[in-house]
Design a binder for these strands. Structure first.
Lengths: 272, 272
DNA sequence: AAATGTCCATCTAGAAATTATACGATCAAA
DNA sequence: TTTGATCGTATAATTTCTAGATGGACATTT
């Protein structure tokens, strides 16, 4: 009996329960009831199922505090990071402005996204007008989009540019919504997207200049013990790495030690 | 009849469906079946309910492409940003490494978080040893945690520090897991957290030095038309704003024009 | 032209999940 | 002592969902 044997709805509830126990260290039926709008009876059933699943380290009901308390050696059924669990910790505080710092909201045109998505699916090239902020010029060209990617801040489209004869990352927002969006079947298969199919292994270390003590704080903060922290991504996304990890900013506490590349076996043959 | 009249499970499914139509521009029963593990019959029912809800701009079934196509004037039932919808667009590509740039994973000690959470709930002060990276010193003190916050990268605890006589943001990861965590009931109510209860309204504009054309790209990219973009947060979180929005980095395309403050009516009386 | 496959839809019976309701127990606080 | 908040249980009724069968439209393959 595992989580996977359950129906989607109940699995969701048990994962939520699991996170409450993991991060709050406690949970009530009430938590389930408020979150999922189920009855007390169902919530009680969910608890019993959970207890059955958490064989090794089951939570214990504390009649004094009237809640279930996670075992000290509690082992989460479904691992989660603190960031993902933030809403569980912040909940109850519905006030505006929120407890989370707002992020830049990058707008995008629904229709453009859908067109790109369909071009990706059907393997077509589309004609777009793209504004490059560096050159500042509106630029008509055919591109063959292959997938969406994310640098954590905004969503990009990875596409082969016939004009430049290479794969590039495009920001959908800079595609003119009034582009023709004319479609064209690909005459010949696209070249391999080498940068996409190259793994970039980036080794980070505490920024030089930090004291030993500071360096050890940095290490524990990013969860590594040895000399280096190893992070893996694709070469095609490496350009965004420094910004994402704040390596270029003044207060940076990590720096790159070295970077290695190795080819990735394509998931499917001929997957660009 | 609205989304809210539905049960949680079905609502989730319809929201997913809505996002497929919004961002992919198309949807199948198969999408629901794969995502939620339901039967074809149930997926068909969900579609019918969705069509009932999307009265004004219902999607249309295209028998040639064998999918539902979103109306050109499609109005999402549940608004969503592109970033949230990224997983819907990237799905199907399960390969590692993923299509998303990895983010720094900030580890945290389960037990510490749970202790803080319980101290917040019960309004107690706790004794902790905290490592300040600036001073580099381990620092024993009593703090009275009031809430969790997030700067988008890591989770903080907002707490009143008795040692410093003010509210501060603490990184749970820097709290020594071997602190005593001795608890103490608050002798007297905490002072008001003024910075928390102050709204910071930040007005941004395209970075000076950009050409008119570039500035207009920036405007459309961040979704504002006038001179300024208005962002609202709490003064207590303002310290993190520039980093979150990349205002300090070399390639920054926005800059702060002005900042206004105004008091927020506390959600609950005496809510610190 | 016919067969096959893949979507869509619908129907019905039955299984499973969930609710409504009632009842009982423990403990803390008023 | 009473009240209220938890917890738990049990049963019957209701709702939700599935299984399996049937049919239609269309594209592709034979």
């Amino acid at each position: 009996m595992t989580l996977d044997d359950l129906k989607h709805a109940q699995r969701e509830r048990l994962i939520f329960l699991d996170r409450c126990l993991t991060w709050r260290g406690m949970a009530n039926r009430r938590d389930l009831i408020e979150r999922f709008g189920i009855s007390t009876a169902q919530a009680a059933l969910d608890f019993r199922v959970y207890l059955g699943l958490a064989r090794s380290t089951p939570p214990i009901y504390d009649p004094v505090r009237k809640t279930y308390i996670a075992a000290t050696e509690h082992e989460p059924l479904a691992p989660s990071g603190l960031t993902e669990a933030f809403d569980i910790l912040a909940s109850g505080d519905e006030s505006m402005p929120s407890a989370a710092l707002p992020r830049p909201e990058r707008k995008a045109d629904r229709r453009t996204i859908a067109l790109l998505h369909q071009a990706i699916r059907s393997g077509k090239a589309v004609h777009v007008r793209y504004t490059s902020i560096s050159s500042g010029a509106d630029d008509e060209q055919w591109i063959a989009p292959t997938r969406f990617t994310s640098d954590g801040e905004s969503v990009h489209v990875r596409a082969h540019s016939f004009k430049h004869g290479e794969y590039r990352n495009y920001l959908p927002i800079r595609i003119d919504p009034d582009s023709s969006f004319e479609e064209k079947l690909l005459a010949e298969p696209l070249p391999e997207d080498v940068d996409w199919n190259t793994r970039a292994i980036i080794w980070l270390r505490p920024k030089s200049g930090l004291s030993d003590r500071q360096a050890s704080v940095v290490r524990s903060e990013f969860g590594f013990e040895g000399e280096f922290l190893r992070v893996e991504t694709r070469k095609a996304l490496e350009f965004f790495f420094n910004r994402r990890w704040g390596l270029d900013t003044k207060g940076a506490r990590l720096e790159r030690a070295k970077t290695e590349y190795e080819p990735i076996a394509p998931a499917w043959p001929n997957d660009n």
